[in-house]
């Protein structure tokens, strides 16, 4: 598979300021050295718990945040330090769908203008052509034409998410960051939107970075899955492989924690001690060691590298 996106050594630190002169006193290390590749037409799942930096990673990759360090290549082109105007043609090809279907649509704009916004910015076609293109896009995501002249507040959460998806695909991008796109929706609607994502990928040849805290969903939609903990990727493998043969102790806990809708299959839940440490001062060595059920002395001293444990199954653990 040809790679579409490559990220190496990516870091995003947010400064914490204090005092009346806003001096920087520390940094939140939201993304702390991530290497990734996403192949064309692939879905790479990204799972992790709240605060692990997965959303920041998604936003930094499409440069909604300026990276602190590292490089981002889109189709072998370094886009890390492109200026806003040089970035514009690249933006056309990488889009994002957000979690909150209520906050992601401008309440003062009609659906038609929301979906057409990208076409207008990139100077596509005349008004009539644009209108036709918007109508067609809405049809693709399963909305009727009469949605055009209505405002976002007239739609349900699921329909709003369809509008947000329409906005993202209107420019015919190659790559879409899906940032928890279904977490705010009801179960029955979640399934509809998952199906829509799968369908769009087949029809339009899209590549996804699919971010979610829900392992069931990520497993379902992804070809490969990366697990993130405190700003770092700690395991990355083909979807099936990761679930059947998790190597990192954190991944094992995550998988065992997912509730299964089958009362016959009482699972063995491993409970973790403590909470996720603060990304301001992450623990020395392996960031997971204070909560790890199998940690040894080495884990608190040396940070494990993300290494290939055989046939492309990457893991960052001394003991795996």
């Amino acid at each position: 598979m040809k790679e579409l996106l490559k990220v190496s050594g990516l870091k995003k630190y947010f400064p914490i300021t204090s005092g009346i002169l806003s001096r920087v006193s520390n940094y939140v290390k939201a993304v702390d050295g991530v290497d990734l590749t996403v192949g064309r037409g692939e879905t790479l799942g990204l799972v992790g718990e709240s605060g692990c930096g997965k959303t920041t990673l998604g936003k930094t990759i499409i440069k909604l945040h300026e990276p602190t360090e590292g490089e981002i290549f889109f189709e072998d082109k370094d886009i890390t330090n492109l200026s806003a105007s040089r970035m514009r043609p690249v933006r056309k090809r990488m889009q994002i769908v957000f979690q909150d279907p209520y906050g992601s649509l401008n309440p003062k704009m009609k659906v038609e203008d929301i979906v057409a916004e990208g076409l207008v910015i990139h100077g596509h076609s005349s008004g009539a052509e644009r209108k036709a293109a918007v109508g067609e896009t809405l049809h693709t995501v399963g909305l009727r034409e009469d949605a055009l002249s209505r405002y976002p507040h007239e739609f349900s959460g699921g329909q709003r998410q369809r509008i947000a998806i329409a906005r993202a695909i209107a420019l015919k991008p190659d790559f879409i960051v899906c940032d928890e796109p279904i977490s705010a929706l009801d179960v029955s609607v979640q399934a509809q939107i998952i199906n829509l994502f799968i369908e769009l990928q087949e029809r339009l040849g899209l590549t996804y970075l699919f971010i979610s805290h829900d392992l069931r969903v990520v497993k379902h939609i992804s070809d490969r899955v990366a697990v993130m903990y405190l700003g770092k990727i700690i395991e990355l493998a083909a979807s099936k492989e990761l679930y059947e043969n998790p190597l990192h102790p954190y991944t094992k806990v995550l998988i065992s924690s997912v509730p299964v809708a089958d009362p016959q299959r009482k699972r063995e839940t491993t409970l973790l001690k403590g909470d996720v440490p603060s990304p301001i001062n992450p623990p020395e060595g392996c960031a997971f060691h204070p909560r790890c059920p199998i940690a040894v002395a080495k884990c608190s001293r040396e940070e494990p590298e993300l290494r290939d444990a055989g046939s492309g199954h990457m893991v960052a653990c001394h003991l795996a």
């Binding site: 909604l64 970035m87 933006r91 889009q95 994002i96 910015i121 420019l171």
Partner: peptide
């Protein structure tokens, strides 16, 4: 902090727009 503002930036809109 609203996602629709990020979405507008992601679509390539300049600051003024």
């Amino acid at each position: 902090r609203y996602a629709y503002v990020d979405a507008a930036i992601a679509l390539g809109g300049n600051d003024a727009r």
